[in-house]
């Protein structure tokens, strides 16, 4: 079993296929959606984890691409700008997955582990220095 984080970018045209249903039902994938905004006639996005056999993940991605939806596995939904971060640590108790954490209790420096981020965006609301930004 593999888990992959996928970033889907929807073109500003109407796509009425129930994508998630097909991923679950026909490609046997477990889907965990983090963030989504899909509106007709506008650019949209969907950020999700898919879990399943490599083969099924491949066929699922192929299916999504056949709908003219861009699939990106490298994208980042959230950007931590280290040069803007003052390492105060106010974000840390608000991050539910420890993606933002104090890496060294001697220096109290903060680091961002993107793989743990579920894009709840609470860091953005709680950073006084705008050091975290959403790319969407």
């Amino acid at each position: 079993m593999t888990t992959k984080k996928l970033f889907l970018y929807f073109p500003p045209t109407k796509i009425d296929a129930p994508i998630v249903y097909h991923l679950v039902k026909e490609h046997n994938l477990t889907v965990n959606i983090f963030r989504a905004k899909v509106t007709p006639d506008e650019n949209g996005f969907l950020v999700l984890d898919v879990t399943g056999d490599d083969e099924n993940i491949e066929s699922g991605i192929e299916y999504i691409r056949s709908l003219n939806v861009e699939v990106n596995e490298q994208s980042k939904g959230l950007r931590w700008e280290e040069e803007k971060c003052v390492h105060c640590g106010n974000c840390v108790p608000h991050c539910p997955t420890d993606a933002l954490s104090v890496i060294d209790r001697q220096t109290m420096r903060i680091s961002f582990n993107e793989n743990l981020c579920i894009q709840c965006l609470s860091c953005i609301e709680n950073c006084p220095f705008s050091a975290v930004k959403s790319v969407f």
Binding site: C88, G89, P93, M108
Partner: peptide, 25 residues
């Protein structure tokens, strides 16, 4: 406080900071 978690009123509470020890250093 700098451990990030304390015991208070019989429960474990998460701790954040608004000053930066790293920048003070």
């Amino acid at each position: 406080l700098k451990q990030g978690e304390v015991q208070l009123g019989g429960k474990t509470v998460e701790v954040g900071s608004l000053s930066s020890y790293a920048q003070a250093l």
